[in-house]
Nucleic acid binder design. Structure first.
Length: 571
DNA sequence: GCCGTTTTCGGCCCGACTGTTTTCAGTCG
């Protein structure tokens, strides 16, 4: 049983309770528990086995019992009973944007609906407006909500969202009315996927900014257009929310819109305990009411006697406690990265020559990059045979004599065969500076087999890094199931680095696994997996995962200088 | 349903926008 499966049950219970009009705080307790379980770095089954479920924040006696039942039987009677009481169509309706529990119940009671299609027909033929408080506009909203749902409000990758946000910001920046502007939300927290893009602006003339925003090119539909808050849909259904506040409220608003929701709730609770109130306009002393701060985020944290918390950590997974004790990690930054240890060239499936790659790396300020082309069993990617690899090593050495200010490291991305062996013999591996190993086939093996396969590769005396350890490709292939505790311990014991692959569809290891790996003393390597020069810029996404995993400079292999790296990788 | 240097009971973050009203409920973030 995986953590996210337990979390999903609790989230669905919360949805069901909402429809039943249950105590909102009880509903929140389920959602909070779900979120905390999802962000655990350890497997919930093992925590249950140890009997320490109630140490998880938000898990008390009752929920601990429910978790034990799920872990033991794979089911939860309470949840199944609840589902029986509520028609599935009501749950479906609540999933439509704009329809909440109240409206869904009302619609069901009146029409005894069987399907969403039926609801759409009723709305289109103006038969819903017989209900109280529903007129033509609401019918229109229901139709639009159904269309939105059908199109699917998928989360988009960070790599897709960030450039869109930057483009909109650049357009709005040119307005003289715009003072400060930044993106917020899960994008600023650099979550691997984001649902919509939040942008915050300070201005004393919000109306004009709103008018420009809702008529930007690319805006397909305006969802809301108020004085301080507007929402639009871009082509492809991407939602962008814009909020305008006074300059004095910038910090408070940025804090609020960056979230996460759980982080904000914790801060507001702490504020209450200390006699303050936080809103998006500032932090206020309650009696007598007086604004204390709000212009900068750091001032609000400061008022609560907390150290400044970087956006990537704001998930209420212990960062607030750490900030109170002054024990926050000093997060690794992009400028700490001294080189890239996962780069492909024309020799296999990359687009550029060794020389072009070296020049691009130098421009980025790197000291080194490792050329890690595929090896022979990965035929589809033009993997190198033993003689080809030998020739490449010679070529790299020859180039290094000529290159100034950048060093190419010899390397390869070895294929880990289905039995854990590598596809190139040891004598040549011994000549390489950096050996990266990865699984490219046989994904369907059992958890035990895959775990063993990776550990065998780590035990190999020449392997330095395991690339994209779980093999996931977002939207294409799920991560394969591994025993992470064993993998991490083996990585630590064999002095093998695990990769955070910076490719936006991979980001593998992810944030949660990286955090656990660090806790167990594993070193991580952030690799861009570049196949074309532009992709070197993806490094920022890998660094974001590292920051979300609380990693410091010392936890990341490629923050080492060339000299230290060579010393460290001499196995 | 959880939680406790105010508490084992009584709290639990806070505000904007919309559509329908004419002071507010519902929904959303």
């Amino acid at each position: 049983m995986k953590n996210f499966e337990v979390a999903q049950v609790f989230n669905e219970i919360a949805d069901l309770l909402e429809i039943q009009n249950a105590n909102p705080f009880r509903i929140r307790a389920y959602r909070k528990a779900a979120q905390n379980i999802e962000s655990l770095t350890q497997n919930i089954e093992e925590i249950a086995k140890k009997g320490s479920l109630e140490e998880i924040p938000g898990i008390g006696k009752d929920l601990a019992g429910k978790i034990r039942e799920i872990v033991a039987t794979g089911r939860l009677k309470y949840y199944e009973d609840l589902k029986k009481k509520i028609p599935a169509i009501i749950l479906d309706m609540v999933a439509i944007p704009g329809i909440g529990p109240k409206t869904a119940n009302l619609l069901y009671d009146k029409f005894k609906l069987k399907s969403i299609d039926q609801l759409e027909k009723l709305a289109r033929s103006h038969k819903i407006c017989v209900l109280p408080n529903i007129k033509e506009k609401t019918e229109g909203n229901i139709i639009r909500g159904i269309e939105l749902l059908k199109r699917g409000k998928e989360r988009m990758s960070l790599g897709m969202a960030l450039p869109i946000a930057v483009e909109i910001i650049n357009k709005l920046k040119s307005l003289p009315e715009v003072k400060r502007i930044n993106y917020a939300g899960s994008l600023r927290r650099m979550k691997e996927t984001v649902r919509d893009i939040d942008i915050l602006v300070t201005s004393t003339r919000p109306k004009r900014i709103m008018d420009v925003f809702v008529s930007l090119p690319g805006v397909k539909e305006v969802l809301a257009h108020g004085d301080t808050k507007s929402s639009v849909l871009l082509q492809g259904g991407i939602q962008v929310d814009l909020r305008v506040v006074e300059p004095d409220s910038y910090g408070a608003a940025l804090l609020y819109f960056t979230g996460s929701k759980q982080h904000n709730i914790r801060l507001r609770t702490i504020a209450n305990q200390k006699g303050y109130k936080i809103s998006e306009y500032g932090i206020f002393r309650e009696k007598p009411e007086k604004r204390v701060a709000g212009k900068e985020e750091a001032d609000i944290y400061g008022t609560l006697e907390l150290a400044y918390i970087h956006p990537e950590m704001r998930e209420d997974t212990g960062e607030i406690e750490a900030a109170a004790k002054g024990r926050l990690p000093r997060l690794v930054e992009e400028k700490d990265i001294k080189g890239d240890l996962h780069v492909h060239s024309k020799w296999s499936d990359g687009a550029h020559s060794l020389e072009e790659l070296a020049e691009a790396a130098k421009k980025r300020g790197y000291q080194y990059i490792a050329i890690t082309d595929h090896t022979q069993s990965l035929k589809i990617a033009g993997g190198l045979s033993k003689p080809e690899l030998k020739r490449q090593i010679k070529e790299v050495h020859r180039l290094n004599k000529r290159l100034k200010g950048i060093t190419l490291l010899t390397g390869a991305e070895m294929d880990i065969l289905s039995d854990g062996k590598l596809d190139i013999p040891d004598d040549i591996l011994a000549e390489l500076d950096i050996v990266v190993a990865a699984i490219h086939s046989g994904f369907k093996q059992s958890k035990e087999q895959l775990t063993k396969r990776l550990i065998n590769a780590m035990k190999h005396k020449h392997v330095h890094i395991i690339a994209h350890p779980t093999g996931r490709l977002m939207g294409v292939r799920d991560a394969y199931d591994l025993n992470f505790e064993e993998i991490f311990k083996a990585a630590r014991d064999t002095n093998t680095a695990l990769e955070i692959n910076a490719f936006p569809e991979r980001l593998d290891l992810n944030d949660i696994n990286s955090k656990r790996a660090k806790e167990l003393g594993v070193t991580l390597a952030i690799g861009s997996d570049t196949h074309a020069i532009d992709q070197m810029d993806n490094m920022i996404f890998g660094v974001s995962v590292a920051r979300r995993g609380w990693l410091e400079k010392k936890n990341v292999l490629n923050t080492l200088s060339l000299k230290d790296l060579i010393r460290r990788t001499a196995k």
